[in-house]
Design a protein around this nucleic acid. Structure first.
Lengths: 346, 346
DNA sequence: ATTCTCTGTGTAAAGGATTACAGTAAACCA
DNA sequence: TGGTTTACTGTAATCCTTTACACAGAGAAT
């Protein structure tokens, strides 16, 4: 077990060739005669030579490392995207370093610094940066792709589902079941997805000739906590004129809502339909299984990474939005609007 | 917006000093007069100079990057450990690159290669390596710490909870409630934690003068899937002489068991006590909230990282086991053994 | 015989930082 | 005044690769 690193020089010396030859062989660039190749190859094996990546990267001015900036990893939604990114990276021989921000602008800035310091070749941002200036400068200078959320698609591509269409699909499903009193549990964060889903909710109502009742719109916590979903639902269901369906912009909110309904002895979906968004694991852990919009999280990560690598290897690439397919998956938490036998609406 | 990197040379030239002076100022090593410091500082700002880490690392022979090898990130248990590691790294100015193996030995090997290639300074392994040889060689040569699972604590330190004591605690809780027919849902993986928990289960029974009934021991899937927990519980509960309590080595198995009990109309905890392990999010998403052993996941990651950094900065450090405190958290899924009014045991 | 293409290989210059060592000028001491 | 610190700064070697360029020798073409 040799403690100190073997360098290319050691190999060259021992094999009786120049470092250039060794390098050419190792990298498969340039021509090396079969005879020398054999000798050098053997020497490499014998000495256990591994090229020093720091030196190589310094010379080649690339790191083959990409940066992933995301709010946290404990949220399964992000975790799945992460899995997609790391897998794609692995395939392409890149490694991924993670930077979790907890949505702290200062942390976001620090993460971005890694680009300026030449520590990484590019970045995938899973959280619209709070500081637009910072984003703009970084995106103008380095390969960056936005995943899931975005702030500006002109300067850097963004990969996500079509949140507007997805929300419209879900609303169509709900209205198709006969619901007219549909509430919304949105979030008080300022993600673009939140805005779009909220807008789609309103547009759907309006275009169906229904009015938007501000009292039917509740804002859950910015991190989509399950408990805040429960609280919002509780408020909605205790209104004088409660909704017969709740459109949640997150599965966790939907889950919280099913709990709230259970607590108030309101059967789901018989008397209350609840829909979620994202399709994370726990939508099918307990009945009622939640009707939701499935996002291809893994794929989202994978495609983001691919676009980034493309850009890295082939130079300036496309910007703009890249939409991946979503899917409306109907399960147990939504059903035909219930009509009280007495004739009254429920 | 200058496209090309500003180097230390540019700064030196513009500020009218030597590169050495700039370097000294940037690194805070050596003495620099206030006057020059001011000029250089200003020049750095003006030019937007950021030291190139590749060059620095090459020279200093360190990368300030650590490797995290884990089976996956989508499991919240790992995700929380990961969060702890990345936070600790961030504090110390390290970055963390992730390598997910999906428990594939080949991938584990590839991950370890990063140490040999000098791409990272050290590693945290969250998955006992399948290939002991590989582990042994790597651990002998590089700073490695094992987190949560481990294969050999002589050659590299391991951070985890005291699985034996934790399991004994849970069994004591169950037996303290009057249960004598206690089943086990273990896993068919070969993690050390699995072995220890299983052993503790048996020892507890034996030391209480009870016998170990092989029929009461079921093996769930190696990845602790919720569905396999349900299946195991279903089998147990349909036995002629079903258990009155199930000790699960994972929360997901416990969750699956509550579902199984519900399907068979067996009230939990009135007629069946169920205990979990780990205390991940979904233990309190639905009633009955699950009685479990809380693991300090975040802290596990944090401490692992700290030990690694210590080793990196202060040379060879301790090996052996580092136990972090666990906690028995009693919630709703366990209760006093139910006695049928007719006098028969249930 | 001369020139030209190939092969195959070596030399040495980047690449961008850190740092040992040397040097200068001012300040201090005797 | 001469000698010794002290405070500061610069020169150049070093870390390990990659790669542009030069070069030598062999065979082909003229």
């Amino acid at each position: 077990m040799n403690r100190s690193k073997v360098t290319i020089k050691d190999v060259a010396l021992k094999a009786g060739v120049s470092v250039a030859t060794v390098s050419r062989l190792v990298n498969g660039t340039g021509i090396v005669s079969e005879a020398t190749a054999a000798i050098v190859q053997e020497t490499i094996q014998e000495l256990g030579y591994e090229p020093n990546l720091m030196a190589r990267n310094l010379r080649k001015k690339e790191t083959r490392v990409i940066l992933i900036v995301c709010p946290n990893v404990t949220n399964p939604y992000y975790a799945h995207i992460l899995a997609g990114i790391t897998e794609a990276s692995y395939q392409k021989g890149y490694s991924a370093v993670m930077y979790t921000t907890n949505s702290d602008p200062e942390r976001e800035l620090e993460g971005i610094q890694m680009l300026y310091k030449g520590r990484v070749d590019g970045a995938i941002l899973m959280d619209g940066l709070r500081d637009y200036e910072v984003f703009y400068h970084a995106a103008a200078r380095f390969p960056i792709v936005q995943c899931s959320e975005y702030v500006d698609t002109e300067i850097a591509p963004a990969v996500c589902i079509d949140n507007y269409q997805a929300s419209r699909d879900m609303m169509a499903h709900l209205m198709g079941l006969g619901h007219t009193r549909i509430a919304l549990i949105s979030s008080d964060n300022d993600y673009i997805s939140t805005k779009i889903r909220t807008q789609a909710y309103k547009d759907s109502l309006l275009q169906a000739g229904l009015s938007v009742n501000p009292g039917y719109i509740k804002l859950g916590s910015s991190d989509y906590s399950f408990q805040s979903g429960r609280t919002c639902a509780l408020e909605l269901l205790q209104m004088d004129d409660p909704p017969s369906a709740i459109f949640c912009i997150s599965d966790t909110f939907a889950l919280g809502s099913t709990i709230a309904a259970k607590e108030l002895d309101i059967p789901t979906p018989q008397e209350l339909s609840i829909s979620g968004f994202d399709d994370v694991e726990y939508t099918t852990m307990h009945h009622p299984y939640i009707t939701t919009i499935a996002q291809p999280c893994y794929k989202l990560g994978e495609v983001s990474a691919q676009i980034l690598f493309d850009r890295l290897e082939k130079g300036p690439a496309r910007t703009g939005l890249v939409h991946l397919d979503h899917q409306l998956v109907v399960r147990e938490s939504t059903a035909k609007k219930w009509i009280d036998p007495s004739g009254e609406e429920s």
